[in-house]
């Protein structure tokens, strides 16, 4: 009865979208923070290769953060 009244598909899609969006943004922002912090640490330790790699991870995290948020907003506006 309840399943008939509730738009189960919409509800499940909403739940899935919430989980994916929040977890994805958390991961990429955390990676951005990890990368930039480790870049400084590695740089100070003289490990230039590792520092560049960490900076790459940080940069990728930033780019993905912007991309995920922009995608979400565009999807909402597009309906």
């Amino acid at each position: 009865m309840l399943a008939v009244l509730v738009a189960v598909d919409d509800l499940l899609m909403s739940v899935a979208a919430s989980v994916v969006a929040a977890v994805a943004v958390t991961v990429v922002v955390s990676l951005a923070i990890w990368g930039t912090t480790k870049y400084v640490d590695f740089h100070q330790e003289g490990r230039q290769g590792a520092a560049v790699a960490a900076l790459g991870v940080g940069g990728l995290g930033l780019v993905l953060t912007v991309a995920i948020i922009a995608t979400g907003i565009v999807m909402m506006v597009a309906g």
Partner: peptide, 16 residues
Amino acid sequence: QGAGAAVIMASSHFGF
């Protein structure tokens, strides 16, 4: 904040 924003925006998209 991220969790709240994600849940509210996804729900808004489906008209909840």
